[in-house]
Design a protein around this nucleic acid. Structure first.
Length: 224
DNA sequence: GCCAACGTTGGC
DNA sequence: GCCAACGTTGGC
């Protein structure tokens, strides 16, 4: 409830109104490139009967950028500065990302990823403190992520509340994660299928426990 | 600032 | 339901 902050994740204000929320599942049908096993879940309604995810990665921009005259900057320091170090992850306007947020459970952890900035990468860890509920910004004409096609009696977009947990012991740059991803693709390893690389534009993505743990282990290693 | 990748829209 | 055009994401 406390006014939280925004984390832009995707802007797009989708217009159109025919889709009903739930199913829009992601790749919207046509693209289907043989979906990786991993995401089968994310789409569709959440119950799609697939893997259950327990760890997440959420992207937000830590540097100022103006959209319709409004600064969409929201980095980990901004989250940390909020009352209770807690904020709502509003502004997600992509169905796959939304569906993943709807699967999140209180207490789960998510990496706070800094995107579209000088040094993209994982900055810290946060905890889901409130499960998905209606993203009020979709009805706010003044908001960057206002969505005229979404009606209060059938809201399209959801958000969760997140609380800052801690900074990474050292910032984990995208460039380093990518080296592991490539290496693991060649020789096998936990980051072989990481969504950050296989679904580059997804702003809210699931991680397997193996991916999450491997990334945590990097904190204690020398930068690659 | 560029631009590749890819999600979304809307005509047919 | 297909698919071309368009718009956005986000690394570089």
């Amino acid at each position: 409830m406390p006014p939280k902050k925004r984390a832009r994740v995707s802007k797009t204000s989708a217009k159109s109104g025919k889709i009903d929320d739930i199913e829009r599942t992601s790749a919207a049908g046509r693209k289907r490139k043989a979906a990786a096993p991993v995401e089968k879940t994310g789409e569709g309604s959440q119950s799609a009967g697939s893997a259950i995810f327990t760890c997440w990665l959420m992207k937000s921009e830590p540097e100022s950028r103006f959209e319709n005259g409004i600064d969409v900057k929201f980095g980990i320091e901004d989250l940390k500065a909020l009352p209770d170090q807690t904020g709502c992850w509003d502004g997600v306007r992509n169905y796959q990302a939304r569906n993943f947020m709807r699967q999140m459970k209180e207490g789960q952890q998510a990496f706070f990823y800094h995107s579209n900035c000088k040094e993209p990468g994982i900055a810290g860890i946060m905890r889901i403190v409130k499960e998905a509920y209606v993203d009020h910004t979709q009805f706010d004409k003044k908001d960057v992520h206002y969505d005229a096609s979404s009606k209060p009696d059938n809201p399209k977009w959801s958000m969760v509340d997140v609380q800052f947990q801690r900074m990474m012991k050292r910032f984990l740059p995208l460039s380093e994660l990518k080296k592991y991803h490539l290496q693991h693709g060649a020789n096998g390893g936990p980051l072989k299928d990481m969504a950050l690389f296989t679904r580059a534009r997804l702003s809210v993505q699931p991680l397997t426990a193996e991916e999450f743990d491997f990334i945590l282990s990097l904190e204690d290693k020398e930068p690659l």
